[in-house]
Simulated assay, not measured.
Amino acid sequence: MPANSKSTSNGCGSVEPLAASAAGLAQTTLCITGGAKTRQFTVEIARTSIEQAKGLMFRTELADTAGMIFPFPEPKLASFWMKNTVIPLDIIFIRANGTIESIAENTIPYSTTPVEAGEPVVAVLELRGGLTSELGISAGDKVVWQSK
């Protein structure tokens, strides 16, 4: 499982709770490591079906250090769309071992065309559109966060 209960020196997977987001969602620190680089984000956690259905809909901006994680209780073939989503997003599909399965970059705002994982995943991460390319984040990179 990508989430763990151990604190690390750079705050990735820290067990210290963060304040709720402006939208009222729990937040956690999430890190993506590829090669020698680790990038840290503060992400909202969309746990419930209602939170996951709304996701980042209607948001007009997303900071480069922010995002939203959609954890699933069991691996599944995840499918997302951009209905009512104003800004382009990078949609990152995360395997049970914490590695990135694939990335749908710069998804099209308001599109109802499904964006799907290529295999069962345990979580999906959404970041600002184009950010994964700008930061060099790619399939196979490792994602760590605390989901409790």
Score class of each variant (00 low, 15 high):
E74D: 08
N10M: 04
R39L: 06
E116P: 00
I87Y: 01
L125S: 01
L77V: 09
V122D: 02
A22M: 08
V86R: 15
R95I: 02
A3V: 04
T28V: 05
E126R: 00
G67I: 05
P73L: 03
I32L: 15
A139Q: 12
A20I: 07
T38D: 15
I103M: 09
F70P: 01
A78P: 06
S7R: 09
P73V: 03
P73I: 02
I50Y: 12
I103L: 12
S5A: 12
S9I: 07
T42M: 07
A96L: 10
G13E: 04
N84A: 12
E116L: 05
C12G: 05
C12H: 02
S133C: 03
V124Y: 02
A23S: 13
P17L: 05
L131K: 06
N4H: 11
A23M: 12
L25S: 11
A3Q: 08
A139E: 07
L127W: 00
A78K: 13
T42V: 14
C12F: 04
P88F: 00
E44N: 09
L77Q: 14
L127S: 01
E61K: 14
K83H: 08
D90S: 00
L56D: 09
A53Y: 08
T99F: 03
K6N: 08
T107L: 01
T8D: 13
S147K: 10
I100Y: 01
L125T: 08
P120H: 08
K148G: 13
T8N: 15
V124W: 04
K83G: 06
I32N: 03
T132R: 04
F93M: 00
I103V: 07
T38Q: 15
G55F: 01
P75T: 06
T8W: 10
K83L: 06
A139D: 07
E44Q: 14
S49I: 03
C31P: 03
M1Q: 11
I108Q: 14
G35A: 08
E105H: 09
S79T: 08
E74Q: 14
F93H: 09
G67N: 12
E134C: 01
E74Y: 06
E116G: 05
P88E: 13
I91V: 14
C12P: 02
P71H: 09
V122Q: 12
C31I: 04
I92Y: 04
T132C: 15
P88M: 15
S147L: 10
N106K: 09
T107D: 00
K142T: 06
V144A: 10
S102D: 09
